[in-house]
Design a protein around this nucleic acid. Structure first.
Length: 257
DNA sequence: ATGGCTGCTTTGAGCAGA
């Protein structure tokens, strides 16, 4: 079972790249973030043509998440939004059960700056994500929580930590909020398989950041212990970031035996 | 570098991203 997660920065702008990537990488499940389109405008038919069926939670212009599964895999018990969200809430969470694995796909708020109201919203959102886990799940079930967390867990996940210090993605408050989520009983699969520095999932579009590998690892694939024991590989696929007009994020891939 | 790109928007300069 191969599960992927990718912040595509607009599913319609990235449709050709996404289709080609799915055809080549052949994940069983693909979690998307920042789809940036309402559900009725999601390119359902085009993605069915490459063999995937999707469930979506989108909105115009901002945010938006979706889970796709290759034909033949049932997508069960779909849940949209966190508990407490309403129709006006930003569209940032969709969950489903596929092949017995509970998959929770999130696009955590960016936060803008540590002084901004959006930063408080981010911390509260991460606290609510932990509450969601406690309310609906146990850490002994097969569960994968993946997506764009907009937090770099440790300084090893950051190019030039002194330059980032005091900014979003790396503040102690954000890291504590992420740790609180992981303390539910989740393992960072990528770090379980790679202990080196210089391994990132996002690079700024500006200043040739990707070419210089000035990046940050903020896209995560977290699993419970039972799945960690079955996880044979976890990786970041840098290849799509090299294309013309790429997403600024790379896809994450996890293999479960 | 209060900079640098990119996608989106009731077409445009402004917002948000990270």
């Amino acid at each position: 079972m191969r599960i992927a997660s990718w912040n595509v920065n607009s599913v319609r702008s990235r449709l050709d790249q996404l289709g080609a990537w799915l055809a080549r990488s052949a994940p069983d499940v693909i979690c998307l973030q920042e789809t940036k389109c309402e559900d009725e405008k999601f390119p359902m038919r085009e993605l069915e043509e490459v063999g995937y069926r999707f469930v979506t939670l989108g909105q115009k212009t901002y945010n938006g998440v979706a889970i796709g599964a290759r034909f033949g895999l049932a997508i069960d018990d779909v849940k949209r939004n966190l508990d407490g969200d309403d129709a006006e809430s930003q569209k940032r969470m969709i969950a489903a059960t596929i092949e017995g694995i509970r998959i929770i796909n999130v696009y955590v708020p960016n936060g803008q700056t540590p002084e901004a109201p959006a930063f408080t919203y981010k911390l509260e959102w991460l606290a609510r994500l932990r509450q969601e886990l406690d309310a609906h799940h146990t850490n002994t079930q097969d569960l994968l929580l993946c997506g764009d967390f907009n937090v770099a867990p440790e300084n090893i996940d950051v190019h030039d930590p002194p330059k980032w210090e005091g900014g979003i993605l790396v503040t102690p408050q954000e890291r504590a909020a992420l740790r609180n989520v992981m303390d539910f009983g989740l393992v960072d699969t990528f770090r379980a398989h790679h202990d080196g520095a210089g391994l990132y999932s996002w690079w700024d579009y500006r200043t040739g950041a990707f070419r210089k590998n000035h990046g940050v690892r903020i896209d995560l694939t977290l699993v419970t212990k039972s799945l960690a024991a079955r996880c044979t590989a976890a990786s970041i696929d840098r290849r799509p970031r090299e294309l013309d007009r790429p997403s600024d994020h790379a896809p994450m891939v996890v293999d479960i035996g």
